[in-house]
Nucleic acid binder design. Sequence first.
DNA 1: CGTGCTCTTGACAGTAGTCAAGATGAGTGG
DNA 2: CCACTCATCTTGACTACTGTCAAGAGCACG
Lengths: 240, 240
Amino acid sequence: MIDPLLKRLRMRDDVSDAEEMTLREAIRERRALQAGEVAVREGEQLNVSILLLSGFMARYKDLQDGSRQIIELNVPGDFVDLHGFTLKRLDHNIAAMTACQIGLVTHEALKRIAEDHPHLTRLLWFMTNVDAAIHREWVLSLGRRTAQHRMAHLLCELHARLKAVGAVEADCTFSMSIRQVDLADCLGLTAVHVNRVLHELRERGLVEMQRGQIIVTNPPALRQLANFDDSYLYLERHPA
Amino acid sequence: MIDPLLKRLRMRDDVSDAEEMTLREAIRERRALQAGEVAVREGEQLNVSILLLSGFMARYKDLQDGSRQIIELNVPGDFVDLHGFTLKRLDHNIAAMTACQIGLVTHEALKRIAEDHPHLTRLLWFMTNVDAAIHREWVLSLGRRTAQHRMAHLLCELHARLKAVGAVEADCTFSMSIRQVDLADCLGLTAVHVNRVLHELRERGLVEMQRGQIIVTNPPALRQLANFDDSYLYLERHPA
DNA sequence: CGTGCTCTTGACAGTAGTCAAGATGAGTGG
DNA sequence: CCACTCATCTTGACTACTGTCAAGAGCACG
Protein backbone atom coordinates (compact mmCIF):
# COMPACT_ATOMS: atom_id res chain seq x y z
CA MET A 1 0.00 0.00 0.00
CA ILE A 2 2.90 2.39 0.54
CA ASP A 3 4.43 1.09 -2.66
CA PRO A 4 4.23 4.34 -4.59
CA LEU A 5 6.26 6.07 -1.87
CA LEU A 6 8.85 3.31 -1.83
CA LYS A 7 9.03 3.27 -5.58
CA ARG A 8 9.66 6.99 -5.56
CA LEU A 9 12.32 6.79 -2.84
CA ARG A 10 14.09 3.89 -4.49
CA MET A 11 14.22 5.81 -7.72
CA ARG A 12 16.46 8.26 -5.88
CA ASP A 13 18.42 6.09 -3.49
CA ASP A 14 18.63 2.70 -1.83
CA VAL A 15 16.13 2.01 0.91
CA SER A 16 17.23 -0.80 3.18
CA ASP A 17 14.83 -3.42 4.46
CA ALA A 18 15.19 -1.94 7.93
CA GLU A 19 14.28 1.47 6.61
CA GLU A 20 11.34 0.08 4.70
CA MET A 21 10.18 -1.62 7.87
CA THR A 22 10.53 1.60 9.83
CA LEU A 23 8.39 3.42 7.29
CA ARG A 24 5.74 0.71 7.24
CA GLU A 25 5.54 0.73 11.01
CA ALA A 26 5.31 4.48 11.09
CA ILE A 27 1.99 4.33 9.31
CA ARG A 28 -0.30 3.34 12.10
CA GLU A 29 -3.60 4.64 10.99
CA ARG A 30 -5.31 4.64 7.66
CA ARG A 31 -8.28 6.67 6.53
CA ALA A 32 -10.51 7.27 3.54
CA LEU A 33 -11.40 10.78 2.39
CA GLN A 34 -14.35 11.80 0.27
CA ALA A 35 -13.92 13.98 -2.75
CA GLY A 36 -13.90 17.59 -1.59
CA GLU A 37 -13.14 16.80 2.03
CA VAL A 38 -10.70 19.19 3.69
CA ALA A 39 -7.97 17.20 5.40
CA VAL A 40 -5.88 19.99 6.92
CA ARG A 41 -6.80 23.59 7.53
CA GLU A 42 -4.42 26.50 7.50
CA GLY A 43 -3.12 27.28 10.96
CA GLU A 44 -4.21 24.09 12.74
CA GLN A 45 -1.68 22.68 15.15
CA LEU A 46 -0.44 19.41 13.67
CA ASN A 47 0.89 16.22 15.19
CA VAL A 48 0.48 13.86 12.26
CA SER A 49 1.48 13.96 8.61
CA ILE A 50 -0.44 12.54 5.71
CA LEU A 51 0.86 10.07 3.18
CA LEU A 52 -1.34 9.91 0.10
CA LEU A 53 -1.94 6.31 -0.89
CA SER A 54 -4.49 6.69 -3.67
CA GLY A 55 -6.46 9.52 -5.27
CA PHE A 56 -5.57 13.17 -5.74
CA MET A 57 -5.25 15.94 -3.22
CA ALA A 58 -4.59 19.66 -3.55
CA ARG A 59 -2.92 22.27 -1.38
CA TYR A 60 -4.48 25.67 -1.76
CA LYS A 61 -4.71 29.17 -0.33
CA ASP A 62 -7.78 31.34 -0.17
CA LEU A 63 -7.83 35.09 -0.58
CA GLN A 64 -10.20 37.53 1.09
CA ASP A 65 -11.98 38.33 -2.15
CA GLY A 66 -13.03 34.70 -2.47
CA SER A 67 -10.47 33.70 -5.05
CA ARG A 68 -8.41 30.59 -4.55
CA GLN A 69 -4.99 29.48 -5.70
CA ILE A 70 -4.01 25.84 -5.76
CA ILE A 71 -0.31 25.56 -4.88
CA GLU A 72 0.30 21.93 -5.75
CA LEU A 73 -1.57 18.87 -6.84
CA ASN A 74 -0.57 15.72 -5.01
CA VAL A 75 -0.44 12.23 -6.43
CA PRO A 76 -0.19 8.83 -4.73
CA GLY A 77 3.14 8.39 -2.98
CA ASP A 78 3.32 12.05 -1.98
CA PHE A 79 3.89 12.85 1.65
CA VAL A 80 1.33 15.61 1.45
CA ASP A 81 2.24 17.55 4.56
CA LEU A 82 5.55 16.14 5.63
CA HIS A 83 6.70 19.74 5.93
CA GLY A 84 4.19 20.04 8.75
CA PHE A 85 6.62 17.96 10.83
CA THR A 86 8.98 20.91 11.18
CA LEU A 87 6.49 23.73 10.60
CA LYS A 88 3.89 22.44 13.11
CA ARG A 89 1.10 24.28 11.31
CA LEU A 90 0.52 24.87 7.63
CA ASP A 91 0.23 28.10 5.72
CA HIS A 92 -2.37 26.54 3.42
CA ASN A 93 -5.25 24.10 3.30
CA ILE A 94 -5.21 20.58 1.95
CA ALA A 95 -8.24 18.93 0.44
CA ALA A 96 -9.09 15.72 -1.39
CA MET A 97 -9.85 16.32 -5.07
CA THR A 98 -11.15 12.80 -5.53
CA ALA A 99 -11.94 10.00 -3.10
CA CYS A 100 -8.62 9.19 -1.40
CA GLN A 101 -6.91 6.68 0.81
CA ILE A 102 -4.39 8.19 3.18
CA GLY A 103 -1.96 6.91 5.78
CA LEU A 104 -1.24 8.87 8.94
CA VAL A 105 2.19 9.15 10.48
CA THR A 106 2.54 10.80 13.87
CA HIS A 107 5.17 13.46 14.35
CA GLU A 108 6.40 11.40 17.25
CA ALA A 109 7.19 8.59 14.85
CA LEU A 110 8.87 11.04 12.49
CA LYS A 111 10.92 12.40 15.36
CA ARG A 112 12.12 8.90 16.21
CA ILE A 113 13.09 8.43 12.57
CA ALA A 114 14.93 11.73 12.67
CA GLU A 115 16.85 10.60 15.75
CA ASP A 116 17.64 7.05 14.74
CA HIS A 117 17.71 6.95 10.96
CA PRO A 118 19.77 9.80 9.52
CA HIS A 119 19.85 8.35 6.03
CA LEU A 120 16.11 7.88 5.87
CA THR A 121 15.72 11.34 7.34
CA ARG A 122 17.75 12.81 4.52
CA LEU A 123 15.49 11.04 2.04
CA LEU A 124 12.42 12.55 3.68
CA TRP A 125 14.08 15.95 3.72
CA PHE A 126 14.78 15.40 0.03
CA MET A 127 11.08 14.80 -0.57
CA THR A 128 10.12 18.14 0.94
CA ASN A 129 12.82 19.80 -1.12
CA VAL A 130 11.34 18.32 -4.28
CA ASP A 131 8.01 19.85 -3.33
CA ALA A 132 9.76 23.20 -3.09
CA ALA A 133 11.25 22.59 -6.55
CA ILE A 134 7.76 21.97 -7.89
CA HIS A 135 6.62 25.20 -6.30
CA ARG A 136 9.46 27.00 -8.06
CA GLU A 137 8.41 25.66 -11.42
CA TRP A 138 4.88 26.89 -10.74
CA VAL A 139 6.25 30.32 -9.88
CA LEU A 140 7.96 30.31 -13.27
CA SER A 141 4.78 29.18 -15.02
CA LEU A 142 2.56 31.72 -13.34
CA GLY A 143 5.05 34.50 -13.81
CA ARG A 144 6.27 33.97 -17.32
CA ARG A 145 4.30 31.40 -19.31
CA THR A 146 1.15 32.05 -21.34
CA ALA A 147 -2.09 30.36 -20.42
CA GLN A 148 -1.66 27.70 -23.07
CA HIS A 149 1.92 26.85 -22.13
CA ARG A 150 0.99 26.80 -18.46
CA MET A 151 -1.76 24.32 -19.10
CA ALA A 152 0.44 22.13 -21.24
CA HIS A 153 3.19 22.28 -18.65
CA LEU A 154 0.89 21.31 -15.81
CA LEU A 155 -0.41 18.31 -17.71
CA CYS A 156 3.16 17.26 -18.49
CA GLU A 157 4.08 17.55 -14.84
CA LEU A 158 1.21 15.34 -13.78
CA HIS A 159 2.06 12.84 -16.48
CA ALA A 160 5.69 12.67 -15.33
CA ARG A 161 4.84 12.42 -11.65
CA LEU A 162 2.22 9.77 -12.17
CA LYS A 163 4.52 7.80 -14.39
CA ALA A 164 7.21 7.93 -11.71
CA VAL A 165 4.96 6.11 -9.27
CA GLY A 166 3.73 3.67 -11.89
CA ALA A 167 0.29 5.19 -12.35
CA VAL A 168 0.43 5.71 -16.10
CA GLU A 169 -0.21 2.87 -18.44
CA ALA A 170 1.70 2.39 -21.67
CA ASP A 171 3.48 5.73 -21.24
CA CYS A 172 1.40 7.25 -23.94
CA THR A 173 -1.78 8.40 -22.28
CA PHE A 174 -3.13 9.35 -18.95
CA SER A 175 -6.41 10.72 -17.79
CA MET A 176 -7.36 12.81 -14.85
CA SER A 177 -10.62 13.63 -13.24
CA ILE A 178 -10.52 17.30 -12.37
CA ARG A 179 -12.92 20.15 -12.87
CA GLN A 180 -12.01 23.07 -15.07
CA VAL A 181 -12.47 25.44 -12.12
CA ASP A 182 -9.77 23.54 -10.29
CA LEU A 183 -7.42 23.71 -13.24
CA ALA A 184 -8.12 27.43 -13.30
CA ASP A 185 -7.16 27.67 -9.64
CA CYS A 186 -3.90 25.87 -10.40
CA LEU A 187 -3.04 28.06 -13.34
CA GLY A 188 -4.09 31.46 -12.06
CA LEU A 189 -6.79 31.69 -14.73
CA THR A 190 -10.57 31.77 -14.85
CA ALA A 191 -12.60 28.67 -15.60
CA VAL A 192 -13.84 30.32 -18.77
CA HIS A 193 -10.35 30.79 -20.07
CA VAL A 194 -9.31 27.28 -19.08
CA ASN A 195 -12.16 26.08 -21.24
CA ARG A 196 -10.90 28.07 -24.20
CA VAL A 197 -7.35 26.83 -23.75
CA LEU A 198 -8.47 23.21 -23.51
CA HIS A 199 -10.58 23.77 -26.57
CA GLU A 200 -7.53 24.80 -28.52
CA LEU A 201 -5.38 21.96 -27.22
CA ARG A 202 -8.14 19.60 -28.27
CA GLU A 203 -8.25 21.09 -31.74
CA ARG A 204 -4.53 20.49 -32.02
CA GLY A 205 -5.12 16.87 -31.13
CA LEU A 206 -3.19 16.99 -27.87
CA VAL A 207 -5.89 16.33 -25.31
CA GLU A 208 -9.46 15.09 -25.10
CA MET A 209 -12.17 15.80 -22.60
CA GLN A 210 -15.00 13.61 -21.45
CA ARG A 211 -17.27 13.96 -18.46
CA GLY A 212 -14.88 15.73 -16.12
CA GLN A 213 -11.93 13.76 -17.41
CA ILE A 214 -9.00 15.19 -19.27
CA ILE A 215 -7.19 12.69 -21.41
CA VAL A 216 -3.76 13.49 -22.70
CA THR A 217 -3.57 11.73 -26.01
CA ASN A 218 -0.17 12.84 -27.20
CA PRO A 219 2.28 13.42 -24.34
CA PRO A 220 5.37 13.90 -26.53
CA ALA A 221 3.70 16.64 -28.58
CA LEU A 222 2.43 18.23 -25.40
CA ARG A 223 5.92 18.18 -23.91
CA GLN A 224 7.24 19.94 -26.95
CA LEU A 225 4.56 22.59 -26.77
CA ALA A 226 5.19 23.13 -23.06
CA ASN A 227 8.94 22.99 -23.48
CA PHE A 228 8.80 20.54 -20.65
CA ASP A 229 12.00 19.43 -18.93
CA ASP A 230 11.44 17.05 -16.03
CA SER A 231 14.75 17.71 -14.30
CA TYR A 232 13.08 19.85 -11.64
CA LEU A 233 11.34 16.69 -10.42
CA TYR A 234 14.66 15.06 -9.47
CA LEU A 235 13.69 11.66 -10.76
CA GLU A 236 17.25 10.54 -11.31
CA ARG A 237 19.17 8.26 -9.04
CA HIS A 238 21.63 9.77 -6.60
CA PRO A 239 22.47 7.64 -3.57
CA ALA A 240 23.55 9.62 -0.52
CA MET B 1 29.19 37.18 11.32
CA ILE B 2 26.65 34.35 11.28
CA ASP B 3 24.56 36.35 13.71
CA PRO B 4 21.60 36.86 11.38
CA LEU B 5 21.28 33.08 10.96
CA LEU B 6 21.51 32.50 14.71
CA LYS B 7 19.02 35.25 15.38
CA ARG B 8 16.61 33.67 12.95
CA LEU B 9 17.06 30.16 14.40
CA ARG B 10 16.70 31.38 17.98
CA MET B 11 13.51 33.12 17.06
CA ARG B 12 12.11 29.66 16.38
CA ASP B 13 13.80 27.45 18.91
CA ASP B 14 16.67 27.18 21.37
CA VAL B 15 20.12 26.74 19.91
CA SER B 16 22.56 25.31 22.43
CA ASP B 17 26.12 26.54 22.73
CA ALA B 18 27.30 23.23 21.30
CA GLU B 19 25.02 23.62 18.31
CA GLU B 20 26.15 27.19 17.80
CA MET B 21 29.73 25.98 17.89
CA THR B 22 28.97 23.26 15.39
CA LEU B 23 27.47 25.80 13.01
CA ARG B 24 30.37 28.20 13.40
CA GLU B 25 32.85 25.46 12.70
CA ALA B 26 30.91 24.30 9.68
CA ILE B 27 31.61 27.57 7.95
CA ARG B 28 35.16 27.08 6.85
CA GLU B 29 35.48 29.36 3.93
CA ARG B 30 34.26 32.85 3.33
CA ARG B 31 33.98 34.71 0.08
CA ALA B 32 32.92 38.04 -1.38
CA LEU B 33 30.68 38.27 -4.42
CA GLN B 34 30.32 41.20 -6.76
CA ALA B 35 26.93 42.54 -7.71
CA GLY B 36 25.64 40.48 -10.61
CA GLU B 37 27.97 37.55 -10.05
CA VAL B 38 26.38 34.15 -10.56
CA ALA B 39 27.16 31.96 -7.56
CA VAL B 40 25.43 28.72 -8.58
CA ARG B 41 24.27 27.61 -11.99
CA GLU B 42 21.34 25.34 -12.68
CA GLY B 43 22.43 21.72 -12.95
CA GLU B 44 25.93 22.04 -11.48
CA GLN B 45 26.92 19.24 -9.14
CA LEU B 46 27.17 20.72 -5.67
CA ASN B 47 29.22 19.86 -2.62
CA VAL B 48 28.92 23.09 -0.66
CA SER B 49 26.01 25.24 0.42
CA ILE B 50 25.99 29.00 0.71
CA LEU B 51 25.08 30.99 3.78
CA LEU B 52 24.39 34.62 2.94
CA LEU B 53 26.12 36.89 5.46
CA SER B 54 25.48 40.30 3.94
CA GLY B 55 23.94 41.69 0.78
CA PHE B 56 21.08 40.38 -1.36
CA MET B 57 20.95 37.37 -3.63
CA ALA B 58 18.29 36.04 -5.99
CA ARG B 59 17.31 32.61 -7.22
CA TYR B 60 15.96 32.68 -10.74
CA LYS B 61 15.03 30.58 -13.73
CA ASP B 62 15.54 31.47 -17.37
CA LEU B 63 13.18 30.60 -20.19
CA GLN B 64 14.12 29.88 -23.79
CA ASP B 65 12.55 33.08 -25.04
CA GLY B 66 14.95 35.10 -22.92
CA SER B 67 12.52 35.92 -20.16
CA ARG B 68 13.50 35.39 -16.57
CA GLN B 69 11.59 34.70 -13.38
CA ILE B 70 13.08 35.38 -9.98
CA ILE B 71 11.86 32.73 -7.55
CA GLU B 72 13.02 34.21 -4.30
CA LEU B 73 15.05 37.10 -2.98
CA ASN B 74 17.46 36.16 -0.23
CA VAL B 75 18.46 38.32 2.71
CA PRO B 76 21.32 38.00 5.21
CA GLY B 77 20.94 34.93 7.39
CA ASP B 78 19.41 32.87 4.58
CA PHE B 79 20.95 29.54 3.82
CA VAL B 80 20.61 30.23 0.12
CA ASP B 81 21.02 26.72 -1.24
CA LEU B 82 20.74 24.51 1.78
CA HIS B 83 18.29 22.45 -0.27
CA GLY B 84 21.25 21.62 -2.50
CA PHE B 85 22.44 19.37 0.33
CA THR B 86 19.76 16.80 -0.47
CA LEU B 87 19.13 17.73 -4.10
CA LYS B 88 22.81 17.72 -5.14
CA ARG B 89 22.12 20.05 -8.05
CA LEU B 90 19.76 22.98 -8.34
CA ASP B 91 16.88 23.55 -10.69
CA HIS B 92 17.65 27.26 -10.81
CA ASN B 93 20.49 29.78 -10.77
CA ILE B 94 21.58 31.92 -7.87
CA ALA B 95 23.17 35.32 -8.33
CA ALA B 96 24.25 38.22 -6.17
CA MET B 97 22.00 41.24 -6.56
CA THR B 98 24.38 43.47 -4.65
CA ALA B 99 27.91 42.99 -3.37
CA CYS B 100 27.69 40.09 -0.91
CA GLN B 101 29.61 38.28 1.77
CA ILE B 102 28.93 34.56 1.89
CA GLY B 103 30.02 31.64 4.01
CA LEU B 104 30.54 28.19 2.51
CA VAL B 105 29.53 24.99 4.26
CA THR B 106 30.56 21.69 2.74
CA HIS B 107 27.97 18.97 2.31
CA GLU B 108 30.33 16.75 4.24
CA ALA B 109 29.97 19.05 7.21
CA LEU B 110 26.21 19.08 6.77
CA LYS B 111 26.19 15.31 6.63
CA ARG B 112 28.05 15.15 9.91
CA ILE B 113 25.50 17.52 11.41
CA ALA B 114 22.72 15.32 10.07
CA GLU B 115 24.30 12.25 11.69
CA ASP B 116 25.25 13.74 15.02
CA HIS B 117 22.86 16.61 15.69
CA PRO B 118 19.26 15.60 15.05
CA HIS B 119 17.80 18.68 16.71
CA LEU B 120 19.96 21.06 14.71
CA THR B 121 19.14 19.04 11.62
CA ARG B 122 15.46 19.55 12.21
CA LEU B 123 16.10 23.28 12.49
CA LEU B 124 17.89 23.29 9.16
CA TRP B 125 15.11 21.22 7.62
CA PHE B 126 12.71 23.80 9.02
CA MET B 127 14.65 26.53 7.22
CA THR B 128 14.22 24.83 3.84
CA ASN B 129 10.54 24.34 4.59
CA VAL B 130 10.15 28.04 5.26
CA ASP B 131 11.66 28.70 1.84
CA ALA B 132 9.00 26.45 0.37
CA ALA B 133 6.36 28.43 2.27
CA ILE B 134 7.70 31.62 0.73
CA HIS B 135 7.49 29.98 -2.70
CA ARG B 136 3.86 29.15 -1.99
CA GLU B 137 3.04 32.72 -1.15
CA TRP B 138 4.64 33.80 -4.41
CA VAL B 139 2.52 31.27 -6.28
CA LEU B 140 -0.51 32.87 -4.69
CA SER B 141 0.68 36.36 -5.58
CA LEU B 142 1.48 35.50 -9.18
CA GLY B 143 -1.70 33.55 -9.65
CA ARG B 144 -4.27 35.72 -7.95
CA ARG B 145 -3.05 39.16 -6.95
CA THR B 146 -3.03 42.26 -9.12
CA ALA B 147 0.22 43.95 -10.03
CA GLN B 148 -0.18 46.57 -7.37
CA HIS B 149 -0.99 44.13 -4.60
CA ARG B 150 1.85 41.88 -5.67
CA MET B 151 4.30 44.73 -5.46
CA ALA B 152 3.01 45.83 -2.07
CA HIS B 153 3.13 42.27 -0.83
CA LEU B 154 6.68 41.72 -1.97
CA LEU B 155 7.85 44.87 -0.24
CA CYS B 156 6.07 43.80 2.93
CA GLU B 157 7.73 40.41 2.77
CA LEU B 158 11.17 41.95 2.46
CA HIS B 159 10.41 44.33 5.28
CA ALA B 160 9.33 41.47 7.53
CA ARG B 161 12.25 39.24 6.68
CA LEU B 162 14.82 41.98 7.09
CA LYS B 163 13.29 43.01 10.37
CA ALA B 164 13.50 39.41 11.57
CA VAL B 165 17.27 39.42 11.19
CA GLY B 166 17.63 42.89 12.64
CA ALA B 167 18.30 44.69 9.38
CA VAL B 168 15.54 47.28 9.61
CA GLU B 169 16.02 50.37 11.73
CA ALA B 170 13.22 51.90 13.74
CA ASP B 171 10.67 49.50 12.25
CA CYS B 172 9.18 52.23 10.18
CA THR B 173 11.27 52.40 7.06
CA PHE B 174 13.56 50.30 4.99
CA SER B 175 15.27 50.82 1.72
CA MET B 176 16.45 48.43 -0.91
CA SER B 177 18.73 48.78 -3.83
CA ILE B 178 17.15 46.86 -6.67
CA ARG B 179 16.49 47.64 -10.31
CA GLN B 180 12.96 47.86 -11.62
CA VAL B 181 13.75 45.10 -14.12
CA ASP B 182 14.55 42.81 -11.24
CA LEU B 183 11.35 43.68 -9.45
CA ALA B 184 9.58 42.90 -12.70
CA ASP B 185 11.25 39.49 -12.80
CA CYS B 186 10.07 38.83 -9.25
CA LEU B 187 6.51 39.86 -9.93
CA GLY B 188 5.96 38.37 -13.37
CA LEU B 189 5.56 41.85 -14.87
CA THR B 190 7.44 44.04 -17.32
CA ALA B 191 9.78 46.77 -16.16
CA VAL B 192 7.49 49.33 -17.74
CA HIS B 193 4.56 48.19 -15.69
CA VAL B 194 6.60 48.00 -12.51
CA ASN B 195 7.42 51.63 -13.10
CA ARG B 196 3.76 52.52 -13.39
CA VAL B 197 2.87 50.59 -10.24
CA LEU B 198 5.65 52.22 -8.24
CA HIS B 199 4.52 55.54 -9.57
CA GLU B 200 1.09 54.97 -8.12
CA LEU B 201 2.39 53.69 -4.80
CA ARG B 202 4.50 56.82 -4.61
CA GLU B 203 1.52 59.02 -5.31
CA ARG B 204 -0.28 57.35 -2.45
CA GLY B 205 2.63 58.20 -0.20
CA LEU B 206 3.61 54.60 0.48
CA VAL B 207 7.05 54.40 -1.12
CA GLU B 208 9.75 56.66 -2.46
CA MET B 209 12.38 56.06 -5.08
CA GLN B 210 15.84 57.51 -5.35
CA ARG B 211 18.76 56.38 -7.48
CA GLY B 212 17.94 52.71 -7.69
CA GLN B 213 16.68 52.65 -4.15
CA ILE B 214 13.16 51.94 -3.11
CA ILE B 215 12.26 53.36 0.25
CA VAL B 216 9.17 52.13 2.01
CA THR B 217 7.97 55.12 3.94
CA ASN B 218 4.80 53.73 5.43
CA PRO B 219 5.00 49.99 6.15
CA PRO B 220 1.70 49.75 8.05
CA ALA B 221 -0.26 51.36 5.22
CA LEU B 222 1.53 49.14 2.74
CA ARG B 223 0.65 46.07 4.78
CA GLN B 224 -2.96 47.07 4.73
CA LEU B 225 -2.94 47.55 0.99
CA ALA B 226 -1.21 44.21 0.43
CA ASN B 227 -3.38 42.48 2.98
CA PHE B 228 -0.13 41.19 4.35
CA ASP B 229 -0.10 38.45 6.97
CA ASP B 230 3.37 37.33 7.99
CA SER B 231 2.34 33.94 9.34
CA TYR B 232 3.72 32.17 6.26
CA LEU B 233 7.19 33.24 7.38
CA TYR B 234 6.94 31.19 10.58
CA LEU B 235 8.57 33.83 12.74
CA GLU B 236 6.95 32.61 15.93
CA ARG B 237 8.66 30.54 18.56
CA HIS B 238 8.06 26.81 18.60
CA PRO B 239 10.74 24.71 20.31
CA ALA B 240 11.00 21.16 19.05
C1' DC C 1 -38.09 14.35 -15.87
C1' DG C 2 -36.82 18.14 -12.95
C1' DT C 3 -32.61 20.03 -10.34
C1' DG C 4 -27.97 21.41 -10.20
C1' DC C 5 -23.40 21.24 -11.40
C1' DT C 6 -20.14 21.88 -15.13
C1' DC C 7 -19.03 22.96 -19.38
C1' DT C 8 -19.43 26.10 -23.63
C1' DT C 9 -19.70 30.25 -26.24
C1' DG C 10 -20.23 35.01 -27.41
C1' DA C 11 -19.81 39.94 -26.63
C1' DC C 12 -17.44 43.31 -24.27
C1' DA C 13 -14.00 45.20 -20.76
C1' DG C 14 -9.67 45.93 -18.55
C1' DT C 15 -5.09 44.90 -16.83
C1' DA C 16 -0.70 44.44 -18.35
C1' DG C 17 2.46 44.06 -22.52
C1' DT C 18 4.85 46.20 -26.58
C1' DC C 19 7.22 49.71 -28.92
C1' DA C 20 9.47 53.84 -28.92
C1' DA C 21 11.25 58.22 -27.61
C1' DG C 22 13.08 60.99 -24.20
C1' DA C 23 14.92 62.09 -19.39
C1' DT C 24 18.20 61.14 -15.52
C1' DG C 25 22.24 60.22 -13.50
C1' DA C 26 26.46 57.84 -12.30
C1' DG C 27 30.93 57.04 -13.98
C1' DT C 28 34.89 57.97 -17.38
C1' DG C 29 38.31 60.27 -19.82
C1' DG C 30 40.19 64.37 -21.80
C1' DC D 1 35.59 70.55 -14.66
C1' DC D 2 33.15 69.37 -18.64
C1' DA D 3 31.53 66.52 -22.30
C1' DC D 4 30.16 61.71 -23.35
C1' DT D 5 28.41 57.12 -22.61
C1' DC D 6 25.70 53.66 -20.87
C1' DA D 7 22.37 51.84 -17.90
C1' DT D 8 18.03 52.72 -15.95
C1' DC D 9 14.00 55.12 -15.36
C1' DT D 10 9.73 57.58 -17.40
C1' DT D 11 5.87 58.36 -20.34
C1' DG D 12 2.72 57.97 -24.09
C1' DA D 13 0.19 55.53 -27.66
C1' DC D 14 -1.43 51.35 -29.11
C1' DT D 15 -2.17 46.20 -28.62
C1' DA D 16 -3.63 41.87 -26.77
C1' DC D 17 -4.25 38.35 -23.53
C1' DT D 18 -7.25 37.15 -20.10
C1' DG D 19 -11.28 38.48 -17.26
C1' DT D 20 -16.31 39.50 -16.74
C1' DC D 21 -21.02 38.83 -17.59
C1' DA D 22 -24.53 36.21 -19.30
C1' DA D 23 -27.13 32.70 -21.55
C1' DG D 24 -27.63 28.19 -23.03
C1' DA D 25 -26.18 23.15 -23.43
C1' DG D 26 -25.00 18.65 -21.49
C1' DC D 27 -25.31 15.31 -18.02
C1' DA D 28 -25.47 12.91 -13.59
C1' DC D 29 -28.74 12.01 -9.98
C1' DG D 30 -32.69 11.62 -7.26
